[in-house]
Design a protein around this nucleic acid. Structure first.
Length: 737
DNA sequence: CTGGCGGTTCTTTTT
DNA sequence: GAACCGCCAG
């Protein structure tokens, strides 16, 4: 069989990775080095060269988007959809296993997946019933604790005993939470993974079956695996199977969520005969951008080691702009955006990146003012929206009226006279009788245990759900019909119409969108594990962010956090707010290793840029209501100086040294009026913004500003002991540290 | 059940 | 600075 079509379009290293023998391999794929390509071609190669059936392959990703993309590209390359192959996210595949083997996994047949919102509600409910002080144990933290334990593969019983009352309480709550989930048949995200892992460990025949089936497992973004995901992979691969792990230790940015960079660092120790291949040729960015990224990331220890290079030229140096404040920073960015737009660049080819969401506001305001379309990437996911979750809760209730979580959620949405008091009675009754709230409601209505008004209200709710229940069971109804009915009967549209502002309108739009999404849902897949299309749809809704986002504007500047930028690329990128305390975030100073993760985040940011990168920071920034004066980020000085070029305003004059800035107002006005921008190259002397320098008299300090060129060039240095001073570069004997 | 008030908190986010 | 929560009054 001619397999050359699989290898022809690849470079040498990519070919090595794709045509590697059928053994364990680790592909260290730098940013923009064709990672997904290698993965997809590797799959094709396995099928054609080693004649592995798609049935014996499993490919694991983190996001649904990545899974979909991989699936699509396999089809594209091979020509047909790979029948029988498992392609999905960790959670999706774990879920699939659990649906198929729910009994072996010790689950109820109709178990449900909770998202983080449901989880938080459940925790709150449990704590309330236990009368626990939620100021000492904030529910959010409890969730966080439970999730962190599950990420590590620990059940409540495995959490080490502790004497301090706080940890004891946490552990106690975890126990109760486990119990509540068990009783209600609820699984949170972490539980999917944990349970799937346990399922394999406790069922040797089942494990053997899957180990024999999956001859080769492929994993994307391996650097982001957490302990339980890694454990599950190792179990699934076993002694006979083999694995291809693709990842980049330099892009591990989810440590705070339990990802273990050690998994990729120790990969070769845990798996036998690992062939390691490095993909270092970058097809995305210019030389200067890559050199900056390389120079920065070199400052991290314990790297597996990689250096990106490109055949395309140096390109433009990275431009560094020191904004006077965050307003000035935004104004500068908008100026450049307009320049590029007028040159003919599409707005969607431009991205503004920031460390934290709070930074987007000033930028947004500026974009609105300049009437430039923008889109904020990420943010609230479609299926996470309040109105959508309500509609889904109605569907869940219709399917199973005993679903207390759903009942709690919508029993009084829209308001129908079942207030906190009535709900409390229902809850209490359910607990005493050991039944669901639904059953409790029935009893209350039957025996008229509550005031007439409340009883009537509950009665009509019961009728509503009973009606929906028969609707849902009509076999000839489509999913979109079902949701249309639900929305209609529950009166969700008039409810949102009453909302003030544009919010209600958007919500109604989203509900319509939901009907559309439900209509487009195909259940004919190989998902025979599900008992009904509606159930399958509800599960999908929990596990999938919902690509059907109502607002995917074509022509718009992309705004997003650095985290959500991973995996994307743009010709023009702005890396904003690159200041100490902000980026790296000051939160990262305490824990060891966190600073390195921030640096990797910066590396991710830099490598998003294809043609041109702007790095900006502000000398003063208003954030959370108060003003702060941060120095330029240490990351700036870690970028090789020859890759950087400072952007200076043309009529720059000496700037006041003190933080008080006596002529703040005039300075501000001057900046506002000065629309002409100009570029000046740094002087020959190797000093740049953010450098640490030593002066023979004043000692050590940080370069925080400079102006002028040639013999007149002066720098402002903030000395550790002497405060900040302006020095003429050609006279001051500065030594760069 | 709604509206208003004060107090608190505020990286990053997918599943 | 604003968003969210819990509390209280109507």
């Amino acid at each position: 069989m001619d397999v050359s079509f699989i290898l022809d379009s690849l470079n040498d290293k990519q070919r090595d990775a794709v045509a590697a023998p059928l053994q364990n391999s680790l592909v260290l794929a730098g940013a923009g080095s064709g990672k997904t390509r290698v993965l997809v071609h590797r799959i094709a190669w396995l099928m054609h060269a080693y004649e592995l059936s798609p049935y014996s392959l499993m490919a694991v990703t983190f996001t649904n988007k990545a899974a979909r993309e991989m699936q699509g590209r396999i089809e594209e390359l091979v020509g047909v959809p790979p029948q029988g192959m498992w392609v999905g996210t960790f959670h999706g595949l774990a879920h699939r296993l659990l649906r198929a083997h729910w009994r072996d996994a010790g689950l109820k047949e109709n178990f449900q997946i909770m998202d983080s919102d449901d989880q938080l509600r459940l925790v709150k409910r449990i704590m309330k019933s236990m009368n626990i002080d939620d100021t000492r144990w904030p529910p959010k933290q409890v969730c966080w604790f439970i999730n962190a334990q599950k990420d590590e593969g620990r059940r409540a019983a495995h959490v080490p005993d502790s004497h301090d009352p706080f940890s004891k309480g946490m552990r106690e709550l975890y126990y109760h939470y486990e119990e509540a989930c068990e009783n209600a048949g609820l699984l949170d995200f972490g539980e999917l993974l944990l349970r799937a892992h346990e399922l394999m460990l406790t069922n040797p025949p089942l494990l053997r079956h899957y180990q024999e089936r999956f001859r080769h497992v492929l994993v994307d973004e391996f650097q982001d695996t957490n302990t339980i995901q890694y454990a599950w992979l190792r179990v699934m691969v076993g002694d006979q199977g083999t694995i291809t792990a693709v990842g980049d230790d330099d892009q591990s940015i989810y440590g705070w969520r339990g990802a273990k960079i050690e998994n990729i660092q120790n990969f070769t120790k845990h798996f036998k005969d690992v062939q390691t291949i490095r993909l270092e040729q970058n097809y995305r960015s210019t030389g200067h951008i890559l050199n900056a990224a390389n120079g920065l990331i070199k400052n991290n220890d314990d790297r597996l080691g990689k250096e990106l290079w490109t055949e395309s030229g140096e390109g433009d140096p990275i431009s560094l702009y020191a904004g006077f404040n965050e307003q000035d920073e935004a104004r500068f960015i908008l100026g450049i955006i307009k320049q590029w737009r007028d040159k003919g660049t599409s707005l969607s080819d431009m991205a503004i990146l920031y460390r934290s969401n709070a930074q987007s506001r000033v930028l947004e305001e500026c974009l609105v003012r300049e009437q430039i379309a923008y889109r904020i990437y990420g943010g609230h996911r479609f299926y996470d929206r309040l109105e959508i979750k309500n509609a889904l809760a109605y569907a869940r209730l219709a399917l199973d009226p005993n679903d207390d979580g759903a009942m709690e959620r919508v029993v009084n949405v829209p308001p129908r006279g079942i207030g906190e008091r009535s709900i409390g009675t229902l809850r209490e009754m359910a607990r005493d009788e050991g039944c669901s709230m639904w059953r409790a409601a029935q009893i209350i209505v039957e025996k008229s245990l509550m005031p007439a008004r409340a009883t009537n209200a509950i009665k009509s709710f019961l009728h509503l759900i009973e009606g929906l229940n028969t609707t849902v069971q009509q076999p000839d109804l489509n999913l979109n019909d079902i949701f249309e009915q639900i929305i209609e009967e529950a009166g969700l549209i008039p409810f949102h119409e009453k909302e003030k502002g544009e919010k209600g309108e958007a919500r109604i739009e989203n509900l319509k969108e939901l009907v559309g999404a439900a209509g487009g849902f195909s259940w004919s897949d190989e998902d025979e594990e599900f008992s009904s299309p509606l159930m399958a749809f509800l599960d999908k809704a929990v596990l999938d962010a919902g690509e059907a986002q109502a607002d995917e504007y074509q022509e718009a500047v992309q705004l997003m956090t650095l985290h959500s930028a991973k995996g994307l690329e743009f010709p023009l990128v702005f890396l904003t707010g690159v200041e100490e305390n902000l980026f790296p975030s000051k939160m990262s100073f305490e824990e060891p290793g966190r600073l390195e993760e921030e640096r990797r985040l910066c590396y991710v940011g830099i490598t998003r840029a294809m043609e041109k990168l702007y790095i900006t920071y502000a000398e003063s920034r208003r954030l959370f209501g108060s003003e702060s004066f941060n120095s330029p980020s240490r990351f700036i000085k870690e970028i090789p100086v020859e890759c950087l070029e400072e952007v200076r305003l043309r009529s720059q004059v000496s700037r006041p040294v003190s933080m008080q800035r006596p002529d703040y107002q005039t300075e501000k006005n001057r900046l506002q009026n000065s629309t002409v921008l100009n570029n000046f190259k740094a002087p020959e002397v190797n000093v740049s913004m953010g450098d640490r320098v030593r002066h023979p008299v004043f000692g050590e300090g940080l370069v925080i500003n400079y102006e002028g060129q040639g013999p007149q060039a002066r720098v402002q240095v903030n000395f550790d002991d002497e405060g900040s001073k302006w020095l003429v570069l050609s006279f001051a004997k500065l030594e760069v540290l």
